[in-house]
Design a protein around this nucleic acid. Structure first.
Lengths: 215, 215, 215, 215
DNA sequence: CATGAATGAGGATTCATTCAT
DNA sequence: AATGAATGAATCCTCATTCAT
């Protein structure tokens, strides 16, 4: 269940690692990953280029760190979600949409980097297979599956698929609205972000209800 | 209503433009936009680098051409969609999902470039404001709005928003499933692409029906 | 028979080529090949680093030029040798030793580079198989073989081997004496260079005579 | 007359020295001296880079150790040569050629390093002047001088020179044949190594005989 | 106009050497 | 004394852009 710790055991090394991660996160506030040079990162970390190369093969090797750090926060956020008591599927989905929206909105810059670079360097960022997000997404699905009716005649696997699809559509829908609101395809959607976040749960619950219901 | 013609009026210039667009499209089959050099493009176009610079400011200036060419195909595809007679909203949405899936799947490599670079260079790709996709997306929305009940008490603007949202969720949902099926957030969704294309219309119609109905 | 021309056909290119070769030859007067940087070479040639890389893969790619240029001079020198009329084997060998000594002595710095680097980068320097030295050495051997007695009972192949060996021992002996007179193994030889050049033919003729003689 | 001991007196230091020498010798089996880094050597020696710098000024400072170790073996081998009883000059020269060939062939990789680097770093490798090879070569010359006729009218110095020259030509001739058989100038010599080793003594004896003889 | 040689800033990378622990 | 993390100068190499022909 725990997110594995990529960080080196030695204290000095650990600090250097963290400094580079922090330096990268700072730089990402201002520019895209591709446009950040190693010299820049080293300066931001207050160390020399050589030190960078002692730790990392190349710039891409920082991506897993970013991904991992994000994963930690994701895990914590999911725990919070799991701790909340919801009395209905509607409430659960609504809260999930709102909370996901806030969570992603607050982490835009890092998420944009992960999102884009996972697409450009998926080999690298996922080199460590324990980092994948399957588990995190399952936990979100499970939040929904709590509201299924035991007596429902639908198969468990169908319900599982439906819940997974809802999670995917929710995250994917929110993501493009947040990261690239003025681009294809988000531009297709004429609503404001606020309205979108309000409408989204309706679509999702409407889909999920019949799947979970008794009949 | 027609997509504007970016191409220069002179015949010779026109040919050069086309050659570079073609060269770029070929190169994209093999590698990412970022890794294609201008020398490479010029060689592919059978002209010199100098000639490239006579026509274009820089490499990014090719993106609108790509975007434009894609827009043309999009327009033609939408016309086909408009020509189809559907007897129900269900049918319309189902056909739209299937057809969109096929359309996007066939243009993966170009679309990936547009999709990523619109995010990296949105300033450039949209320099020409007439190129935006608003109109295309409205036409798709309108396909759905044909099935609204006149007597419905819901406002037209509400219906419009709902249709827009459905189009957005459809395209966005399909896109990530097609372009990056193994990455966040598409991995959240455990279904195969085929099942997803089958389920998607159900979610969308379920949402749309109540908005369009008489009550 | 002719030394092939590695140089590009275009005039501008040709000039650049020559400038780099000249720049390298100048630099070699002062330091070893390994310690010459590309920036240095470019400055010496009066052009930019980029221009270097337009022409050459890397620094080692200059070695064949050096080798080739030396080969040209070698060819010319051999022609001179061939033009001389000698009345006896003694005279021929003596003249050859003296002349080889002068020839190598005048080209010390370039030859040292070729000599060392042929050993460090033999793959590169001999990439062009037409550049090899076999032919040059055969021509020198042939100068000696002119003095063989037709009636000799020794086989032609034996004579050939003997002549080849003499050429090898001559060049190899002179080379180390010239290039590294104070190092192992040249230090073993207590004579001055002048005396050595005087003694060398004696050793070689003594060896060759019996092989070539009638008996 | 003994080879001086460069090694530090402290036991711990001594071990470190030996470990580095061994590490270097191992590395030389695989790559050239120039391409071996200090980190690599330190790892091979099982100590840290810092420890290297406590002992040695830089990488070149290891060369004398290599040279020294080789010198030891050379000394031992010469002793063996001196212990052999030969009944004639021919026998002595023949045995010397064969034995030298075997000795050098077995030590190719180390000798190549010494041979090349003595040329690139003669300042360093000979920093310790007691390491030079004069004495070793004289002892080899003396092996030949044993066969001179006392009554010979040639001066002792002339004989000495002749013997020295023979030693030089022998070692130098064998060396290039062994180390770089396919390069200039060894390719000049068409014979196999075995034939060469057979022919070489003939050349040398032919030269030496008249110098040493009575007349 | 087209060409492609030349430019040179910019970034990646290495590794000998130092020095705090 | 030993360690190995940190340093940063030095070098390699690329490629967008310019400009003489």
């Amino acid at each position: 269940m725990s997110v594995p710790d990529l960080r080196p055991k030695q204290k000095r090394s650990q600090e250097t690692h963290d400094k580079f991660l922090e330096s990268l996160q700072n730089a990402l506030q201002v520019k895209y990953f591709e446009h950040i040079s190693i010299k820049e990162l080293a300066e931001g970390a207050g160390v020399s280029v050589g030190t960078f190369y002692r730790r990392f093969e190349n710039k891409e090797a920082l991506l897993p760190l970013l991904y991992d750090a994000f994963g930690k926060e994701l895990g914590e956020w999911i725990e919070e979600m799991e701790a909340l008591e919801c009395s209905s599927l509607e409430e659960q989905v609504t809260i999930l949409c709102e909370s996901t929206h806030m969570f992603l909105d607050a982490r835009k810059s890092v998420f944009r980097t992960i999102h884009l670079n996972a697409r450009l360097h998926s080999d690298t960022i996922f080199a460590n297979p324990t980092l994948d997000r399957n588990e995190a997404y399952s936990r979100l699905s499970n939040l929904l599956l709590k509201f299924t009716h035991k007596s429902s005649q639908k198969s468990d696997s169908m319900k599982q698929h439906a819940a997974d699809m809802v999670i995917y559509m929710m995250i994917n829908g929110l993501l493009d609205k947040i990261l690239y609101p003025n681009l294809t395809p988000a531009i297709a959607c004429s609503m404001s972000q606020a309205s979108f976040v309000e409408q989204l749960p309706k679509m999702l619950v409407n889909y999920l209800k019949p799947c979970f219901s008794e009949l």
